[in-house]
């Protein structure tokens, strides 16, 4: 392997490490954010879909 190839492999590894950690932090928040619009039925929906099957804004009424 040339010096350059090792360098770019390292850079790739490094970049994917950073990306992976970003996903680790953001994914759970994203999932619950979407889940919040599903209402009660979404809690027990099986199998889960990324967008809950029962979309509604009712849950947000709690804040008003």
């Amino acid at each position: 392997m040339t010096q350059r190839a090792t360098g770019s492999f390292k850079g790739w590894l490094y970049g994917s490490g950073v990306m992976l950690l970003c996903v680790w932090v953001l994914l759970p928040i994203g999932l619950i954010g979407l889940g919040a619009f599903g209402g009660r039925p979404a809690v027990y929906q099986w199998p889960k879909t990324l967008m809950p099957a029962s979309l509604s804004l009712d849950q947000l009424a709690v804040f008003f």
Binding site: P28, I29, L31, I32, G35, V43, Y44, Q45, W46, P47, K48
Partner: peptide, 20 residues
Amino acid sequence: GLVWLAILQNTGYLNTFLFH
């Protein structure tokens, strides 16, 4: 805790992923 409960519970996202 609630975020991770949503992921890890019986009908959660992790199980959905493993199911698929």
